[in-house]
Simulated scan of single mutants.
Amino acid sequence: MTNLINNIFEKISGPAFESVALLLARLGLGGVFYRSATSRMEEGSWTQLTENAVYQFSEAPFNNVPIINGEFGAYFTSFTELAIGLLLMIGLATRLSAVAVLGMAAVIQFFVFPSFAHLWATVAVWVALALILMMRGGGMFSVDKLIGHKLG
């Protein structure tokens, strides 16, 4: 029985299966940030935030972080999340985008929602996925791989 299990794990531990796992990590993590950004935007617009989104960034808990509060903070955060989400989902600048996720996760966890225990569980998943993507890259199903292959 042990040999059977070992054989199964040997077969699924190759680069194709790893790339599928990395693709799912990119889509899952990128999707979170993309949906967060687009949820603040006016319907049909990629550049205009709703009044409510701007208002939320001028209220607690966002006013705990001076550089991301108010209108500037709402736009900066939303466009950063949009860029990170799109880049991760297509696998372009995957490692750099994963570093940006770590930065956003740190700000969210330590400044915006520091006392919510359930948020730590969410942020921990983001951090774990970001660290995996930083270490392994986007995998063979990414624009990074396509560009790297084309560049030699």
Results as ranks from 00 to 15, higher is better:
residue 137 G to K: 04
residue 90 I to A: 02
residue 100 A to N: 08
residue 97 S to P: 03
residue 33 F to S: 04
residue 70 G to Q: 09
residue 95 R to C: 02
residue 112 V to M: 10
residue 96 L to D: 00
residue 135 M to Q: 13
residue 58 S to V: 02
residue 130 A to K: 03
residue 131 L to G: 11
residue 39 S to E: 08
residue 122 T to L: 11
residue 21 A to G: 15
residue 45 S to K: 06
residue 50 T to H: 07
residue 9 F to R: 05
residue 57 F to A: 04
residue 11 K to W: 07
residue 142 S to N: 03
residue 42 E to D: 07
residue 34 Y to I: 05
residue 120 W to N: 10
residue 58 S to I: 01
residue 8 I to Q: 04
residue 10 E to Y: 09
residue 11 K to N: 11
residue 136 R to P: 02
residue 112 V to E: 05
residue 133 L to S: 12
residue 131 L to W: 03
residue 65 V to E: 14
residue 40 R to N: 12
residue 115 S to H: 11
residue 150 K to Q: 10
residue 19 S to H: 08
residue 98 A to S: 12
residue 75 Y to G: 10
residue 79 F to W: 12
residue 96 L to H: 03
residue 100 A to E: 02
residue 107 V to I: 15
residue 17 F to A: 13
residue 111 F to S: 13
residue 81 E to T: 02
residue 110 F to V: 05
residue 127 V to F: 01
residue 26 R to Y: 09
residue 17 F to M: 14
residue 128 A to G: 11
residue 31 G to E: 07
residue 54 V to R: 09
residue 68 I to Q: 05
residue 58 S to W: 00
residue 126 W to T: 05
residue 72 F to L: 11
residue 49 L to W: 10
residue 52 N to H: 09
residue 67 I to P: 01
residue 75 Y to N: 15
residue 37 A to D: 06
residue 102 L to G: 07
residue 27 L to P: 01
residue 96 L to K: 08
residue 42 E to I: 11
residue 92 L to K: 08
residue 142 S to H: 07
residue 142 S to E: 07
residue 27 L to N: 04
residue 110 F to A: 06
residue 54 V to Q: 03
residue 133 L to G: 11
residue 26 R to P: 08
residue 60 A to N: 07
residue 90 I to T: 07
residue 120 W to I: 09
residue 125 V to Y: 01
residue 19 S to E: 09
residue 113 F to P: 00
residue 66 P to T: 13
residue 91 G to H: 04
residue 94 T to M: 06
residue 147 I to T: 10
residue 53 A to I: 05
residue 150 K to S: 12
residue 97 S to N: 04
residue 115 S to V: 05
residue 94 T to E: 09
residue 141 F to G: 01
residue 148 G to Q: 13
residue 33 F to M: 09
residue 67 I to F: 14
residue 69 N to G: 02
residue 142 S to D: 05
residue 56 Q to V: 11
residue 38 T to E: 10
residue 49 L to S: 10
residue 132 I to R: 08
residue 2 T to N: 12
residue 151 L to G: 01
residue 106 A to G: 05
residue 95 R to E: 08
residue 87 L to Y: 09
residue 3 N to T: 13
residue 101 V to I: 15
residue 93 A to L: 15
residue 85 G to E: 10
residue 2 T to P: 00
residue 31 G to A: 05
residue 71 E to K: 15
residue 34 Y to S: 03
residue 31 G to T: 05
residue 102 L to M: 12
residue 92 L to N: 01
residue 79 F to D: 06
residue 129 L to I: 12
residue 61 P to C: 09
residue 13 S to E: 14
residue 132 I to G: 07
